[in-house]
């Protein structure tokens, strides 16, 4: 089932120079893709490729200059009011830096209860319980529900961000560089968590990332962006093992790798 359909999404930014000269920049240029329910579509690219602008448009945090966005069979390109609220109840975002996306003056409990209140989900008396359940689902100790974000490590704080996204039971979670700022051992844990949550609940991810090795761990399909356009899109295996586009090949070749011979010897020893 097609959950999200982006059709020729385009974003142009206009700036004015010191003398009033108009300069136009096309950040995203006629980008089209679909996301099926339960799958992970990764959007990868280098800085300036337009991947984050694309993420912001499909999260409805930014309006496209042209093109259409459909969610669950409904045109949401210009959704406002009740239609937008319905969209937000189904689409959530996890950002790169948990500390700047969590209110430092609110306890975890309050952070996790907020979406329940806005969306009128759990009834009043059960919200506290619900917040604790969410903490358990993402591997946090529910006894810490009265702590503040600063009392958690980076990986734990990102788990809070993920729990908040899950609070409304969304159909789509957009992860914008959600594991990029984490240490490698913590990153592996959070990727595993994201995969487990999807297995359990069957929602979709749009996973925005610059790190192709990370993407390989989580994506079913991959879209490679460069200079505002999708240069290649397909099943992860195909894009990684048999890339068709020249830019994709360059990108893959540039990834530093550990000598496979060393890897093999290490695995044999352990």
């Amino acid at each position: 089932m097609t959950l999200l359909r982006a059709e020729s999404l385009t974003k142009r930014f206009v700036s004015r120079g010191p003398l009033g000269a108009r300069a136009e920049f096309t950040a995203v240029d006629q980008v089209s893709f679909e996301v099926q329910l339960g799958e992970t579509l990764a959007v990868v690219g280098e800085s300036g490729s337009g991947k984050s602008t694309t993420a912001r448009m499909i999260a409805k945090l930014m309006d496209p200059t042209a093109g259409t966005l459909e969610f669950d069979g409904e045109d949401v390109t210009h959704a406002k009011g009740a239609a937008l609220a319905r969209f937000r109840a189904n689409v959530q975002v996890v950002f790169q830096d948990p500390f700047s996306s969590l209110n430092p003056r609110h306890t975890v409990e309050r952070i996790l209860m907020a979406p329940l209140v806005y969306q009128g989900i759990a009834p009043k008396g059960s919200r506290r319980e619900h917040a604790k359940e969410l903490m358990e689902r993402v591997g946090l100790n529910p006894d810490h529900s009265l702590r503040y974000p600063a009392q958690f490590s980076g990986g734990q704080a990102q788990r809070i961000g993920i729990a908040r996204a899950l609070a409304v039971n969304p159909k789509l979670v957009i992860c914008d560089e959600a594991v990029s700022a984490l240490d490698v051992s913590v990153q592996a844990q959070v990727i595993e968590l994201l995969r487990r949550l999807q297995r359990e609940s069957g929602f979709s991810y749009v996973f925005i990332a610059h790190d192709l090795a990370v993407v390989r761990q989580i994506a079913h399909r991959v879209a490679v962006m460069s200079k505002g356009r999708i240069v290649e899109i397909g099943p992860a295996r195909q894009v990684f093992d048999d890339p068709q586009d020249e830019y994709t090949r360059t990108l893959l070749a540039a990834i530093p790798r550990i000598d496979p011979e060393w890897d093999r010897r290490r695995r044999e020893r352990s």
């Binding site: 490698v184 051992s185 990153q187 592996a188 844990q189 990727i191 595993e192 995969r195 790190d211 192709l212 090795a213 990370v214 390989r216 761990q217 989580i218 994506a219 079913h220 992860a236 295996r237 990684f240 893959l252 990834i255 790798r257 550990i258 496979p260 290490r266």
Partner: peptide
């Protein structure tokens, strides 16, 4: 553990999970 945690471009979704 560090070496095990590194995401490998040659591993795919079907491989055993890291970590």
């Amino acid at each position: 553990m560090l070496l095990e945690s590194i995401p490998r471009i040659d591993d795919s979704l079907d491989d055993p999970p890291h970590g």
